[in-house]
Write a protein that binds this DNA or RNA. Structure first.
Lengths: 343, 343
DNA sequence: CTGTTAGCGCATTCAT
DNA sequence: ATGAATGCGCTAACAG
């Protein structure tokens, strides 16, 4: 497999009749270099004519900057992660960086996770969007030799992070149901220990209390972030016999799982049961009925984290701490006024 | 931002009291080197003790192999691509390669696409899963300086590709409906010019004809590969008034779009209309009713393409040409016997 | 204004 | 069985 003829800086310099270092300065737009306009033109012309492409490896070796970023995600099945990656990849490209992907899979135990992170070697920095247990993640990250920004959660003792306002997301979702007249609203929570889980639960509760309702723990079930979790949780809730007419689901997958069970139960959506999901994934609009959601700035989260990481790397800033506002509620057909309310 | 102390080969060599070149040979398991067992042990121990990690950039510069692969995908919104990426990333990691991601977005025109590919510079090879027009893609690829494998389509004049059996996928889907007693089966086709589109159409038609039915062009509409395309196509079909009781949808997104319209129309699924989708994405099970699908070897396609590309790179093989069999039909609740059939 | 020199970290001849 | 020397392609000091 003969690699195609590769044009090096030396070729360009030779063609332009200058020294390689001069060509390097000109091509890199080194501001501190004063060079004759004709020389500059010759170099540029030669580079273009020869189709010169700098060797990123050599440059990286010399400058100790690979211009590559790694992103660690737990999985690709949940649409949350492709969205984050999309934002990250776009931002990275804008800034002249490439994005190396690594999915940690079912990594448990920090050694395994650390391996996944280390596999993303030769990167200048790391974007971390995994779902590990706090302690495990912190321990793995403590060994990192490069700067990193944590996406989608705040970690005790770790400065750099970009999150969105999970509290507001749940509050807005709950308020929507409240405004429709619902008074008994259940919450299919995420992981009630995690950052997002606790914030969402708090947002749900705050909305309830602001409306003068009392928080009823029997209306809350931890459902995780999967379809199966949603199914199990709604069954549990239904089994408890604690009447409710609306549901705030922690994610769109949780909502989908709940809807499967509700359909099986024969309950009519939205007339007999309303549901709001948090995360406006494409699937929300494919569910039946189309799911009302809170649109989350996931792409933006990836993008902001990436710009922040690069700024960090380049010494422009010292820290990345950002909480993005949620976008808005997207009303579809999964919510209606509760049955009992006046018509 | 002081980069953490970095251990080089020289450090290891010094610690072991040997020359760097010796350490290099031992650490790389160079077979042609005979080295004293104690020396070898000392080197290995020193490397481990110091936590030596070879500098991938330096190694790449020296060997002219970056051990990085690029994957170009058109988008991340369609779950097809994350699945392919997952397979590719896993395979790459198994072989000691990293995966650099690049989404070409709405690239049209080969210059733009070429830029996207070139952005994935510094890679040893390229995995190409874009959706471009044949000519555009071929023209962009012609400029590639590295070997590539095309995923999910065959291209005129381009040898290396990994596809799945699109013909069989559509045939199996159609046969399922046939076996249930359907006789008027519509096809929401993909892009009827593309590789997959034509193969699927052919598979659909073959199944029909094998069952002694005549192919009716008025039952086929090009729907592309999006939800909106599915919606438009089913409306078109319904508008034609050509009666049918079953639908073979080119993708799960197409099927989801069709189902939205069918629900809006008030048709009962599956009692009044059956539907099968091609591609067993996670969403299939979240639709209502859960969608019967043909499971496609997407992850495997990514994995096989990646192994093939690496084999190509390493000179183990000369060509990658592979058509993967489909996995199987996954029956859910979107199909039933047609109304007219005996009970 | 431009050229010279040096070296990033590694793998690879070729000598011992 | 090991070491010395060389250079991959590039950029950064420093000369001139």
């Amino acid at each position: 497999m003969p690699t195609a003829r590769v044009v090096t800086l030396a070729h360009v310099a030779a063609a332009a009749g200058v020294n390689a270092s001069t060509a390097s300065k000109v091509l890199n737009g080194d501001a501190a270099v004063r060079v004759g306009p004709d020389t500059r033109a010759r170099i540029l012309a030669a580079a273009k004519a020869l189709g010169y492409r700098p060797n990123a490896l050599a440059r990286g070796l010399r400058t100790a900057r690979s211009h590559m970023l790694g992103i660690a995600v737990p999985q690709l099945e949940n649409p949350v992660f492709p969205e984050i990656i999309l934002g990250a990849e776009t931002a990275a490209r804008e800034r002249g960086y490439s994005l190396l992907i690594s999915h940690s899979g079912e990594a448990d135990g920090d050694a395994r996770l650390y391996e996944a992170l280390a596999a993303v070697s030769r990167v200048d920095g790391l974007l971390v969007a995994t779902l590990e247990d706090e302690a495990v993640l912190a321990s793995a990250l403590a060994r990192s030799t490069v700067p990193f920004v944590v996406i989608n959660r705040k970690l005790e003792g770790i400065a750099n992070h970009v999150v969105f306002d999970s509290f507001a997301a749940a509050r807005v979702a709950t308020e929507h149901l409240l405004s429709l007249g619902h008074r008994r609203i259940a919450h299919l929570a995420g992981r009630t220990e995690g950052y997002n889980g606790t914030r969402r639960l708090a947002g749900y509760r705050a909305a309830l209390e602001a409306a003068g309702l009392v928080f009823d723990p029997s209306l809350v079930v931890a459902a995780g972030y999967t379809v199966e979790g949603g199914e199990a949780a709604i069954r549990e809730l239904l089994g408890r016999g604690a009447g409710f007419t609306g549901i705030v689901a922690a994610t769109v997958l949780t909502a989908a799982g709940a809807m499967k069970v509700l359909h099986a139960t024969g309950l009519q959506l939205p007339s007999q049961m309303s549901i709001v999901g948090i995360h406006d994934a494409a699937i929300a609009d494919m569910l039946h009925p189309p799911l009302t959601t809170v649109r989350l700035p996931l792409r933006e989260m990836g993008s902001v984290a990436t710009h922040g990481l690069i700024d960090l790397l380049e010494g422009r800033i010292g820290q990345v701490e950002c909480t993005l506002p949620i976008e808005r509620l997207v009303a579809r057909q999964s919510c209606a006024a509760p049955l009992g309310s006046r018509p």
